[in-house]
Computed example of a mutant assay.
Amino acid sequence: MAELLPWQYALIGLVFVWSGFVRSGLGFGGAVLALPFLLLVLNKPLVFLPIISIHLLIFSSWIAFKGWRERKSQDVAGSNIDWHYLGQSMKVMIIPKLVGVFGLLTLPAEILSSIIFVIVIVYAIGYVLNRPFRSKRPWMDNLFLALGGYVSGTSLIGAPLIVAVYASHVAKHQLRDTLFVLWFILVAIKMVSFMIAGVDLQLIHQLWLLPCAFIGHLIGERFHRYIISNETPLFFRVLGSVLIAVSVVGILRQFALFIQA
Rank of each mutant, 00 (worst) to 15 (best):
V118F: 15
L207T: 07
G149D: 11
W139D: 05
I185T: 11
F180Q: 12
S168C: 07
L112H: 13
I121V: 13
V118H: 12
F117E: 01
S113E: 04
D141V: 00
A109W: 05
K136I: 04
I157Y: 13
L107P: 09
R131L: 07
T178S: 15
D177I: 13
I119Q: 02
L143M: 09
A164Q: 08
S113T: 09
P108G: 07
V151S: 02
I196E: 06
L147F: 15
G149C: 12
F144I: 08
V170C: 06
A188N: 08
G148F: 02
L143R: 02
Q206D: 03
Y166C: 15
L156N: 12
V163N: 03
S155L: 07
Y127A: 09
T178I: 14
T106L: 11
T106P: 06
S114H: 08
D141G: 03
N130T: 08
I116R: 01
V192S: 04
G103Q: 08
L104V: 14
V128L: 10
I157N: 12
L161V: 11
F180D: 03
V163G: 07
G103F: 00
L145R: 07
A159T: 10
D141Q: 07
A109N: 09
K190A: 15
S193G: 08
K172P: 08
A164Y: 09
V192H: 00
N130L: 00
L112F: 15
M140F: 15
Y150K: 06
L104D: 11
N142E: 06
F180V: 03
I119G: 08
G126M: 11
R137P: 01
I157A: 09
S155H: 01
L186W: 09
L161N: 05
R134M: 01
V118N: 10
V165F: 05
A197W: 01
V192C: 00
Q174H: 12
F184D: 10
I185W: 07
P132F: 04
F102Y: 15
I189W: 06
F184Q: 07
G153C: 03
T154V: 15
R176P: 06
E110K: 08
